[in-house]
Structures are given as structure tokens and as C-alpha cells.
Design a protein around this nucleic acid. Sequence first.
DNA 1: CTATAAGCTGACGTTGACGTGAGGTGCAAG
DNA 2: CTTGCACCTCACGTCAACGTCAGCTTATAG
Lengths: 117, 117
Amino acid sequence: MRIGELAREAGVSVRALRYYEEQGLLGSTRTSGGQREYPETAVERVRFFQSMYAAGLSSRRIADILPCMDTGTTTAQQRDMLAADRAELDRRITELIDARERLDGLIAAAADRVGPS
Amino acid sequence: MRIGELAREAGVSVRALRYYEEQGLLGSTRTSGGQREYPETAVERVRFFQSMYAAGLSSRRIADILPCMDTGTTTAQQRDMLAADRAELDRRITELIDARERLDGLIAAAADRVGPS
DNA sequence: CTATAAGCTGACGTTGACGTGAGGTGCAAG
DNA sequence: CTTGCACCTCACGTCAACGTCAGCTTATAG
């Protein structure tokens, strides 16, 4: 598939896909005319990127863990990285849940006390 | 308390506190010499900011919900905003949990397959 | 053959929450 | 009274993940 279709399927912009390639995250073959060609599996791969970005990982960090995904094997260093990323993600989730509780507290405290418009 | 102490107590930089003031989030009285003076309650207030920033809210958004916190009352519009922010936060939490599952899947898949160093 | 939609490569612009450096002032201790 | 740390106000710098525009080429429908 070409870049436009992949963008639609994965729910990102064309620019984003070119950026991922620039960052070494997403390879592509080229047609004789120079246009990028992607396999079907690229869709899931891009969705994975989105998920990792949402988790707060940088392109660099994602690039670091990609070999694990692609080869299905890990070195000791890579296992450490994965564990660190998971721990960091856990912290972030905890933070967000805490923030949600604060927001809920605010909502509850002001729920029945209607202020002036 | 002065700005340096508040920064330490709340775990942010002095620059951040000045920035919060610039954004209308954090007021301060001034000493005769022009230095900022904060009440003890500012510590908790700044921690609240950090929590909201972590939740993905912008300074502007935080400024919008501050009146609810300060007055303990809400207008219909403010309740809508709070609900929207909470919903968005919920979405983000779900994303992160999904990301964590993906990471866990990756870790589990490669856990016992040690690659070359 | 020709529109025209889609793709290409630079390369500069954007945004938010600060970092950082310059150059000067306030304040408690000795 | 001076040392020295904390504080002050500009104001430019940063960083990441793209957005956007220009100028040109490729692919495809009619």
C-alpha cells in the first residue's frame, strides 16, 4: 500500500509517516517512480508507535525497543530498557489516576453549589 | 514564604513558579523590596498544577478551572469543562493502560529468548 | 493526451513549558 | 560594610513531533 492509504488506515498524517521513516522507525520499499510502498503489517506497526508516543516515549526510545519487536529476542541491556520504560509508564499512569481523583474531588465539591452565570 | 522555598517544597523550579504567575495561575504579594511572598497554601496549589499538567491539561485549561477551586462554585459552562477534561483524562488513562499491555506483551514474548550481545 | 489526485524532497514554522544567561537589586550574617 | 546567596526583570534558546508551503514528479481515470 502507498503512504496515503497507510495514513488513513493507521489514523495518522502522511507527514507523520515520513517523519517516522526519518527517525528510523518505519522502513519502506520504493516503486520505480520513487513512491513509498508499505506492507499490510505497517498499519499495526504505526498503531504501536502511536501507543508508545501516547505512553510518553520519544522516537529515540521507540527506535531502541524496535529490535526487540522485530527479532523477538532481547539482550540484557534491552531487557533493562524495557523494564525501565514499563516502570516509567506505571508512574505516569499513577500520576494520571491521581489527577483524575483530584478532578473528581473538585467536581464533587462544586457539583451542587451553582455559582453565578 | 519566598519563591525558593516554595520551589523546593513543591518540587518545581523557580522559573516554573514565575511562569505560573505569568499565566495567571499563581498570585503573590510582594515585599517592600519587590520579592514575591507566598502563603503556605501555595505549596498544595502548585502540586495541583503539576498534577493537571501531568494529566495533559494546558496552562490555559488550568486557569479556566481555577475559579471553581477558588470559589467552590461552578457555572453550567464550568461543569461542562470539568466533565470534558475528566472524559479526556479517562481516554488518556485508557491509552496508557493499552500501551502498558503492549509493552508487557513485548516483554513476555522476548523474555526467555536471549539474543546476541 | 490531459486533468488531477497523490506523492516526492527540502526547508521553515508552530507550540508549550519551561531553561538559561545577562545585568542589576534585596537581605541577613559577621 | 561587605560578602554572598537569593531574588528581580527582560529576553532569547530549547526540544519534539509534526504542520505547512513551494516547486516538481508520478500515477491513473476518462
